[in-house]
Simulated assay, not measured.
Amino acid sequence: MKYSLFIVFVILSSQASWAQELNATVRVSGQNLPASANRVVDDMETAFAQFLNNRKWTQDNYAPEERINCNFIITIEDMPSVTDFTATVQVQSSRPVFGSNYETLILNFADRDWNFRYAEDQPLIFNPNAFTDNITSLLSFYAYIVLGMDYDSFGNLGGQPYFELAQQIVVNAQQQGGGWDQFGGNRRNRYWLVENMINPQMIPIREGLYQYHRQGLDIFAEEEDEGRSNILEALQGMEEISKLFPQAIAIISFFDAKNDELISVFTKGDPSDRKQAYNTLVAINPSETDKYQVIIE
């Protein structure tokens, strides 16, 4: 009997190890808060990480080593009451590059408008069909954004189902304001991030994610010149979109993640490609012109 129970336990444990998609690290900083808040800050750090890592977000099976590495860096700015918080969140995700030990940053997004209520030991319950609270809505939104970006990098437009799920969270939460709606002067919020990812006019950006990663970085170890050429082609496609939508958050977010990497890629190679890359980067992201200068030096 004990042996049978042990076998059942092993099977269930094995299934669980293949279930989760995210390997999320959550860091909550409450240094601006009184010392009495330390316990609840530690509690939310644990609870948020468990919510992200223990939930099955897709129908696919992931081996432990295939889980997506991501970071949620949460800074508590204010605590109006013992259960009310305002915070900023930096969300980052990465994926391995084939044939190397290198992990490339895919998403690097700063969310500066998050208000939520949390009490110690509060259960976190997410309903994909209705708004429940600002905690599970935000964490689930970014879980789907991370998944969408990752799937787009491995398969052309492969992240579509996850961007649609993220959009549904936005629809459910729009009445809450605070980063969930399209109004106001802040176009660098959750609403516009997912809008860019599902907007048909923005498809070249997502196609560029695939070309950049799968046809660029992933072949770089064996075919460096071809990989660099494909990355340049992906950037040139994004340049056309940047002319139509110069302040699109999807483009801004891409360069927040990729600037240093792009410089590393194009400081080598054919001088003609380097010049084209410089011109393209400056056209898309002129605020970093001085930084890009090293490409043509």
Rank of each mutant, 00 (worst) to 15 (best):
L157E: 09
D152T: 08
A234I: 05
D133W: 00
L107R: 07
Q20S: 14
V194A: 10
K291Q: 13
Y210Q: 07
Y162S: 07
D256K: 10
E261W: 02
G159C: 02
F98L: 13
W192T: 14
V170W: 05
R27E: 15
Q174I: 07
A283M: 05
S229H: 00
Q122S: 15
F48R: 09
N23I: 01
D121Q: 10
G227K: 04
F220I: 15
W114T: 15
R112G: 14
P96G: 08
W57Q: 12
F6H: 03
Y278E: 02
Q215F: 03
M238C: 12
T267A: 05
L157F: 04
M1V: 10
E45S: 14
N186A: 03
D260P: 03
L193T: 10
N101C: 01
L165H: 08
Y212G: 09
T280Q: 09
I284C: 07
I169S: 08
A143F: 01
S36T: 12
D290C: 00
S4V: 05
A87T: 12
S13C: 11
N69W: 02
Q211E: 13
F154H: 12
D78F: 00
A221D: 12
F131D: 09
T136G: 06
A63P: 00
Y118L: 06
G237F: 00
A119C: 01
P34E: 07
A257F: 03
Y162F: 14
D42Y: 02
P271D: 04
L281F: 03
F72V: 11
A143W: 01
Y118G: 10
N127M: 03
S100D: 07
T267P: 05
G269A: 02
I284Y: 09
I205H: 02
D260R: 13
Q167K: 15
G178N: 15
E66L: 06
N38R: 11
L147Q: 10
Y210T: 07
Q160R: 09
E240T: 15
F48E: 11
A173E: 12
R117H: 12
S242Y: 06
G208S: 06
N172S: 09
R117P: 00
A130H: 03
S94Y: 10
T86H: 00
V91Y: 03
S29K: 11
L138D: 02
A24W: 01
Y144G: 05
L107C: 04
I106M: 14
N189P: 08
D181Y: 04
D260C: 02
Q50S: 13
G208P: 09
Y142A: 08
K258I: 08
I249T: 15
F266D: 08
W192I: 10
F116V: 07
Q247F: 05
Q293C: 00
Q167F: 08
V8L: 15
I169E: 10
L235N: 08
P200G: 05
P271W: 03
N285Y: 14
S94Q: 15
A277K: 00
R187L: 11
Q59A: 13
I296Y: 01
S14G: 13
P34K: 04
Q174D: 05
